[in-house]
Design a protein around this nucleic acid. Sequence first.
RNA 1: GGAGAGAUGGCAGAGUGGUCGAAUGCGGCGGUCUUGAAAACCGUUGUGCCUUAACAGGCACCGGGGGUUCGAAUCCCUCUCUCUCCGCCA
Length: 424
Amino acid sequence: MLQLQFIVENKEKTIRGLQKKHFQNAEQFVEKIIHLDQERRQLIAQSNDIKNKINSLSREIGELFKSGKKEEAEKLKQQSTEYKNKEAELDKILKDVEQELHNVLVLLPNLPHDSVPEGKSAEDNEVVFQYGEIPSLPDSALCHWDLAAKYDIIDFETGVKLTGAGFPVYKGKGAKLQRALINFFLDQATQNGYTEIEPPILVNEASGFGTGQLPDKDGQMYFVNEDKLYLIPTAEVPITNIYRDVILKEEELPIKNCGYTPCFRREAGSYGKDVRGLNRLHQFDKVEIVQIAHPEKSYEVLEEMREYVAGLLKKLELPFRTVKLCGGDMSFASALTYDMEVYSAAQKRWLEVSSVSNFETFQTNRLKCRFKDKKGKTQLAHSLNGSALALPRIVAALLENNQTEKGIKIPSVLVPYTGFEWID
RNA sequence: GGAGAGAUGGCAGAGUGGUCGAAUGCGGCGGUCUUGAAAACCGUUGUGCCUUAACAGGCACCGGGGGUUCGAAUCCCUCUCUCUCCGCCA
């Protein structure tokens, strides 16, 4: 959530930022917020004034009772009641105004960083880095869903039977490959200074709100009605919410956490060829890295995280590119996002395998995650996260790019984890 | 699922209608002492909002919401959460 004070003090900047993100009617929204805020301040001033009067009257009445002057006290009581009625009226209006203000504020996406390119959709993203040879496979090369069937390692049909589409069953070497990747990613992260967290995979509403999934993505998360809990769409939610309502010490920053969890996404409304095989699932495994950083350091941290994720892909010997997302393609909460895309040789397309973002104060404002600076002032920290990595598309790319006549070659860094070199 | 207890400042823990934003202890910060540290002693120490250029002033917050009252941390209602015991159980 954007900070009200920032919007009021930086009206033009806010409007421009929202427009860059292709947020509709940015100007009207901002005008409305500024107007509501003015109204709010006025009401607060009036209400406080009356409360002040009531408070001093109460004190006087107390004194009068003590000294036995009951009649005078009764008089003041009446006066107090009048003030109270007036205050109740004001407070009702104030409550409505604040509610309205909150409702609007919550709809606004984060503002993009100055370096974010203009643009509407994925086509306008800026490729900032590319690595590796794009393999040329023979015409007989198979897509991963066919390879999965050929080697009997992923069973999509049984997943449909057990649960539904988008819930694959991994078998044999397929299952072991999942475990290997998870362990490899966690080991890499912890070797790079991240603390491993195993969080709950169901969270309450406050957590969903804290990282920005609610109310924006309500309907995209699975919800357990009986207990009012949400299945997490990413480990970012519980791991970042650890710092909800927390005031950190400046020297504790940056905080580096990582965690593996299954992720659950309803993906309501997305169908078609993009969802074939492992490309888009309702349940998948992911290792996430999360950092809480000092505002002055957060962009250095973002670069460090980007480098880290790139390093993982290099170790897995996958060709990839890094794109800086344009304003229109960025997520709701992000100020700057890099996507890492692995080239799938059989599908002949780039698959997003990681997304690394700086949220600046957008999440921490909701979370009330702050730190005390050297002057003893509390200020909002910055939060960042990235996938490191999401498994399904990595598996898809590994299967497709590494297919040979002999079988599928496992990258050497993974062999100690899988215990086998070939899927055959 | 049944029964009970509880929710107060960073933590522990007092406070059952008026000057309580809240005793006390611990912790934190500053100082005295010390070559330095520890101990001891002294002082200080919550958050948010509104007005203000600033000094300063005001308001709110004792789990959330509502009520009683001139006045609520304290009384009433309600919700949520936590703990204990029993039951069930990986």
